[in-house]
Amino acid sequence: MKNINTIIKTAKETILTESNAIANLANLIDVNFEEAVKFILNSNGRVIVTGIGKSANIATKIVATLNSTGTPAIFMHAADAIHGDLGNVQKDDVVICLSKSGNTPEIKVLVPFIKNYGNKIVAITSNVDSYLGKHADFTLNAFVEKEACPNNLAPTTSTTAQLVLGDALAICLLNLRGFTSRDFAKYHPGGALGKRLYLRVSDLIKKNEIPKVEETDSIAKVIVEISEKRLGVTAVLNNNNLTGIITDGDIRRMLSKTTEISKFTAKDIMGKTPKTILENAMAIDALHIMEDNSISQMLVLDKKDNYIGIVHLHDLIKEGIF
């Protein structure tokens, strides 16, 4: 067994080997890349991404990235393609083929069939002089000097290079399509990421109580309202017009100074400049305001500035936004 002290050294060498290879890819981007992007952009079909072995694994990730950024794509395993799955390729589809060597038997069998169907091929290969490199319509150079594997065998640096070129394609297409955060939200409706992009304050407050008292109400009534509505806060109104806010913290601070609460009304202890947010604001904006002001609740207003409820930090936590 080798010295365990070499672990950190090996890890650093692996990262540096791959990062240097990735940095060099920028020098290999040429007109082939530009023409491939433009052809995919103007294509009426989908993008079919194929490969074999570790390249197939990378292909599935490239497909996921393309789909999530506005370019319809499907994965087709190169070995399965020549045993029936070639039917996935339709008339206007563009095929991206991944192969480090560009000379694997499956690729050499697959390429002629794709060409015979009239589909264009984008090659991502470390060997531009390979069979794939020479027969593709657009060849993207994914050259790496060596794998991170000490035996220079296990696909490591080469698959990372393929992945990065796939990302570069996807982002170029995203920019050219004018793909916005709203578009992104359409393809990512689930999970915290999607919710950050589409969830609004009005969606969060639907099930919440609406605590409120009048300026002239007693402190006892204020305490009851805050306790019953269980949001740690109540709005203070004057003839339905919002004038202030009282939190459970305000109650505690008052009681630390006096217990003669009968002498006071809501107006006496309320905060007169409550933080508010409109109901159609994004939930993520509510979170930012709470963070910036170190608060856990905000009063919500409709478009006419009428008080309609409370958004609480717990609502954001429950939705996975915080």
Rank of each mutant, 00 (worst) to 15 (best):
V89G: 02
S99D: 02
A73V: 02
G102P: 10
T104L: 04
I107F: 02
H83P: 15
A73R: 15
K115C: 03
T125K: 01
V95S: 05
V128Q: 09
S99T: 07
G84C: 14
N88V: 15
V94E: 04
L110W: 10
C97Q: 01
D129P: 04
Y117I: 09
V122M: 07
K108G: 08
S99F: 00
N88L: 15
I96S: 00
N88P: 01
E106G: 10
V89K: 06
M76Y: 01
K108H: 06
K108V: 11
L86G: 08
N119P: 13
D129Q: 15
I74D: 14
N116K: 15
G118H: 14
F75S: 05
A123V: 02
T125A: 01
H83C: 13
E106A: 13
D92L: 09
V109P: 00
A78S: 15
G87W: 11
A81R: 00
S99P: 03
G87F: 15
I82V: 15
D85T: 14
S99M: 03
G84R: 14
V128E: 08
A79V: 15
C97Y: 03
K91P: 02
D92E: 15
V95A: 09
S126V: 00
V109Q: 02
K115D: 00
K100C: 00
I124N: 04
I96W: 04
V111W: 01
V111F: 01
S126T: 05
F75W: 04
S126Q: 09
E106Y: 11
C97W: 00
S101M: 03
I96V: 12
G118F: 15
G87N: 11
V89H: 00
L86D: 03
V94T: 09
A79H: 11
H77K: 14
I107N: 09
G102L: 08
N103M: 04
V89M: 08
N116Q: 13
V128A: 06
V111Y: 01
L110T: 04
F75L: 13
P105V: 06
D129C: 10
V111D: 01
Y117T: 11
F113T: 12
H77D: 13
I121E: 00
F113H: 11
V109K: 14
N116I: 11
V109I: 14
A73I: 10
K108C: 06
D80N: 09
Y117A: 13
V94W: 06
M76S: 06
V89R: 06
D80S: 14
E106H: 06
K120M: 06
V122R: 06
P112T: 11
H77F: 08
D92H: 11
F113I: 12
N88W: 10
K108M: 08
A73E: 05
V94A: 09
Y117V: 02
G87C: 15
F75R: 08
G102D: 05
K108P: 09
V111L: 13
P72N: 02
K100S: 07
P105W: 07
C97F: 05
I82L: 14
D93K: 09
P105I: 02
I107K: 07
I96Q: 00
I121F: 01
N127P: 11
N127M: 03
G84M: 10
N103L: 06
V111K: 04
F113S: 14
I114Q: 10
T104M: 04
